[in-house]
């Protein structure tokens, strides 16, 4: 009883003190962020699917551009042939794997480099985070989960509507905006050494130099070789890398929904029938 009183008295005293003290709490440095434009993605919505050709183009950009600095080591190379992904055949994935050199040991325990196999994960461009940081200023983030590890504040009440509209593309929208966000710094804005001005990066100073420009990667399928196209393709690829089971998830979800709605309906009428006896 005394214990309870003490706690209550302390709590009450704290509250009064808190109110009297006013707003002395230090202001958190909330960096201004420009909301990225919302793009149309093939994988959005309840029936969303990845566009195989787009993922294959995105993979080409990853392989020729991104992978020289960014690792993506949670993915096996063979997963390129998994259902719901870029749609490479198992033979194509094995051929892609063979183009990578993988560090291993031979049967005498000596370090060797061998050709990659589908079960190998994508090799990292740097041996460790310190080496990556030394070469780039800061260590480039791993790309395996990047599309889910980025986003932006949606604000009230938009974030509530997002439940109904199934908006889960804040990450891809943000990455796409960053790739298109390299601009001349406005007058009076000093970009520190080693930094680059980007409209959509929080604080506008990003360590990564502009990675993609028009005509940089050659497409084999006749798609436009522009930054606008590249940025969409590589972003879609990164979304697949982060969420490779998205297509299965949404398809299973539709089946589960139909089942649950039918079950609820049947239970509702059963309930009505059972309770009609006592009402």
């Amino acid at each position: 009883m005394t214990n309870k009183r003490t706690i209550i008295a302390l709590a009450a005293a704290g509250l009064v003190a808190g109110l009297v003290a006013g707003t002395a709490a230090p202001a958190a440095a909330q960096e201004h962020q420009v909301p990225p434009p919302a793009m149309k993605w093939s994988f959005a919505g309840p029936f969303g699917k990845y566009d195989e050709a787009q993922l294959q183009r995105g993979f080409k950009i990853y392989k020729e551009v991104c992978s020289s600095c960014h690792s993506m080591d949670l993915l096996s190379i063979g997963s390129l042939a998994d259902a719901g992904g870029p749609g490479f055949t198992a033979a194509q994935a094995a051929a892609i794997a063979a183009t990578y050199k993988i560090a291993d040991l031979d049967d005498k325990g000596q370090p060797i480099e061998r050709a990659g196999r589908p079960a190998d994960h994508f090799p990292a461009p740097f041996p460790n985070a310190a080496a990556a940081a030394a070469a780039n200023g800061v260590a480039p983030p791993d790309m395996s989960t990047l599309a889910k590890a980025r986003g932006y504040q949606r604000g009230f009440p938009t974030f509530l509507f997002d439940i109904v509209t199934q908006y889960q593309e804040a990450g891809p929208d943000y990455i796409h905006a960053i790739l298109n966000g390299y601009k001349e710094a406005p007058k009076g804005f000093t970009v520190p050494a080693g930094g680059h001005y980007n409209e959509y990066f929080p604080g506008h100073v990003i360590a990564m130099p502009q990675p993609l420009a028009d005509g940089q990667v050659t497409y084999d399928d006749g798609s436009p070789q522009t930054l606008a196209q590249y940025s969409k393709d590589v972003t879609a690829f990164l979304m697949w890398a982060a969420e490779p089971k998205l297509v299965q998830r949404k398809r299973t979800g539709f089946q589960v929904m139909i089942f649950l709605i039918l079950l609820s309906g049947l239970l509702y009428f059963t309930k009505k029938k059972v309770w009609s006896a006592v009402h």
């Binding site: 889910k148 889960q168 949404k250 979800g253 929904m257």
Partner: peptide
């Protein structure tokens, strides 16, 4: 139904 909506459609919301 509500639960499944979150699992299958907005799992990271």
């Amino acid at each position: 139904i509500l639960f499944a909506w979150f699992i299958f459609y907005v799992p990271n919301f």
